[in-house]
Design a binder for these strands. Sequence first.
DNA 1: GGATCCGTTGTAGCT
DNA 2: AAGCTACAACGGATC
Length: 527
Amino acid sequence: MEWSSLKHAVVWFRGILRLHDNPPFFNAANRHELQTILPIYIIDEADYPNGFSNMGDKRRKFLYDSLIDLDQSLRDEYGQGLTVFQGNPSNLLRMIFQNLGPGPNYLFTDYMSEPWKREELDNIEVQINEIGAEMISFPAVNTILDIEETVMSEIYKNPKSMKDIQNILTHRLENGPEGIIVGDPLPAPKSISYDSSAIQKLNSETKISDQIVPLAELKRRSNLLGPSSYFPGGETEALRRLKNKVSERRDFVNSFSKPKTLSTNEAGLPSEPSTTGLSPYLSTGCLSPRTLWKEVTAANLGSKHTKPPTSLHGQLMFREMFHLLSRSVNNWDDDKGNSNCKPIEWGQSDPEALYAWESGMTGFPLIDAMMRQLSTTGWMHHLGRHAVSCFLTRGQLWQNWKHGRDVFERKLLDSDWAVNNGNWLWLAGVAPFSMPYYRVYNPCPDGKSSLNVDAANPEFIRHWVPELSSFPSKYIFEPHLAPIDVQESSKCIIGLDYPLPIVDRKESRRVNIDSFKKNLARIAGRN
DNA sequence: GGATCCGTTGTAGCT
DNA sequence: AAGCTACAACGGATC
């Protein structure tokens, strides 16, 4: 049969790098009139702002490994792998559909709610329609709710609390004795149609084949970026972790209470967090939030269990909340024109303070340990994120939260545009749903601090700040207070081997609370 | 319609 | 040593 007379579907994996619960892939596979399903991914270096231009090495490696894993799973399950391109998605897809010849041909893909992603998909739909192809996109792929439909509904109001988001979920989903019922995730398709001449034909078109990134090249790039830390990328690892940390650990799930979790594992070692560690897999699309929700529900069934906001369901609810807000609040990632951001005057940024913060050289061991862990592994515990973001903004350094947001976006494996901006808005104290500005974390936990969960474990500091590896626990959070003979015997002279604190923590706290108060008075007076 | 309550996770200093 | 209080007091929902 003449190749060009067949019907083809390109399945463009955008925010979902998995086979399970993948609506575009599942639906394409079940359209039996389609002769060829061509699974593709497009690496777009110009992607803004959550993409490659802002992507640190650890995130890149996680993505490459997820693509390598997806390719392998596709080969194992269906006999045909993933074609990875690098280039401009709009140009590439136009060329691909022109090359496929007269249709009807289809583009199956997933809807993403980020503003630039919506714009991208709108443009692509117009372009491929012009050459006779049809786009079919699927919402609610990396969130539980259909973000677009929820935000557009007449009764929608911006959620600001756990209660609000629970009400939204309750209203939009069914409810049972165990609470909110989330729809079943889709299984991986049983088989896909594939005509290998399709990829051969694309390969024969140099303009297109030049932009293919072969598997060997992906592996080379991944290897160049060094070893994985806690979290190897990919769906295979996501499902393994889901099983080991959730499905097979009902007690852990049922007693999960976020504020009580630690940066370290049960043995107190920083080799594994005490949380699930599933966030990078959710943000990269290796794990469906629906699948995770169902596993948590199954663990809860018939047992006493923690409840939102501290439970695992609660964590997923906050994720939904930030995805809704990021869609409904204009300029979600800005401090100007953002109805969820109070216009605090942060003043001129201080490059030295920013550098010290990012590189883990502030002279505050807890802050530095967390920031170095972030740089090395791409992960930081939630309470660590509280500590370092409070320190950078309203707590000690009085820097605009957007600086910290950018660092997190580049370095965190679980970086997610909606969630990352939401967390910074909250922790900087500028959002309607934030912490009160005067609740400033003590960066030097003293036994009563809420940050004490990790502070109780000086080994965490000694691991990430090896300069202090011989320091006694008594002084480890404020080493400059150690007598000089203690510094000498610990082989770490503060101010020489490890920095002096870049600010007086008590004085900066006092001044900043006062500044925040004055800013709020100014803002109130202006209205 | 004014008072009251509440919000995922505070700190410092005193007894 | 654990528990209390002062700190300073937002802003929307509910009553």
